[in-house]
């Protein structure tokens, strides 16, 4: 644990948009995080990686305030998310947006209305202005031609891009991507990688990507946090991570089938199991 604590320390906390401080979170009996700390630097692309099933999506929900940690604190632009009133939380959420794994487009609206939705809800812009903004955002993701389609008519990659246009509609400070590359073909994966990078540069926002697609994300991430075993096992730049000494980090980055994370589920010895079966 002491090694982990050392690794958690970030260089310049003042430049962080999100800070996770000593967070412990459990669901039922199962502890998901134990005294976890890291921070997300402002204006950069940060990747949170880790094996599946260690609660990466949970992390995003904690930052979004949809879940509350058992202990510890989560700061968004210096304000504590778990201690916010409902109203303050809703105000804070207007500055962040989240791209869900499924895209989460509203199925009863066209792509255009989906992108216009947050604008109509949170701004008093005229319909004419909203139209301009929506077309700009759709142009940015290359879907202006699909604005009148319904979400059911889109392919998976297009749906994710449309959802991305919706996520940037209000020009947020922070975008959280939940597994943006999962289940995409190489072309749309490439498109998404390029989009995330260019949006981050052009709009000057901070991006937080939760994923386990190592190669794609290492190509764009400026800061990498690897989570396993209820805490952070390594953080730094992509190159630092590739040169990391921890065998667990190396196993994850290189995709080795056996290592500190065993190939086999813990079980009684194989021989015994076979013999017992035979004895019956």
């Amino acid at each position: 644990m002491s090694i982990l604590a050392e690794l958690d320390v970030e260089s310049d906390l003042s430049q962080a948009i999100v800070e996770i401080k000593d967070v412990t979170f459990s669901r039922g009996e199962k502890t998901i995080y134990k005294n976890m700390s890291f921070s997300v630097p402002k204006g950069k692309i940060t990747a949170i990686m880790g094996p599946s099933g260690i609660g990466k999506t949970t992390m995003l929900r904690l930052i979004g305030g949809q879940l509350k940690p058992d202990s510890g604190d989560i700061l968004f632009e210096g304000a504590s998310i778990p201690n916010m009133t409902r109203r303050a939380l809703y105000d804070a959420r207007k500055n962040m947006s989240m791209l869900f794994q499924s895209g989460a487009l509203f199925t009863d609206m066209s792509v255009f209305d989906n992108v216009a939705f947050p604008l109509r809800e949170h701004t008093k812009l005229s319909e004419e202005l909203i139209r301009l903004v929506v077309l700009m955002k759709l142009q940015a993701v290359g879907l202006r031609g699909a604005s009148e389609l319904m979400p059911s008519e889109l392919s998976g990659g297009m749906a994710r891009r449309a959802a991305l246009a919706r996520a940037i509609a209000l020009d947020p400070e922070l975008i959280m991507y939940d597994e943006p590359f999962a289940g995409q073909d190489p072309i749309s994966m490439g498109v998404l990688v390029k989009l995330i990078k260019s949006l981050n540069e052009v709009l000057g926002l901070s991006s937080l990507i939760v994923t386990h697609d190592v190669t794609e994300v290492l190509s764009i991430a400026e800061h990498v946090v690897i989570i396993a075993e209820q805490g952070v096992i390594g953080s730094g730049t992509a190159d630092e991570m590739l040169a990391h000494s921890s065998p667990l980090v190396q196993q994850f980055l290189q995709g080795l089938s056996d290592g500190p994370v065993p190939f086999h589920q813990p079980a009684s010895s194989y021989e015994d199991a076979l013999l017992i079966q035979g004895a019956r």
Partner: peptide, 12 residues
């Protein structure tokens, strides 16, 4: 399809 979560994250 996470539409409800998505609404929540849009502060609605």
């Amino acid at each position: 399809t996470e539409q409800l979560s998505s609404l929540e994250m849009m502060a609605i």
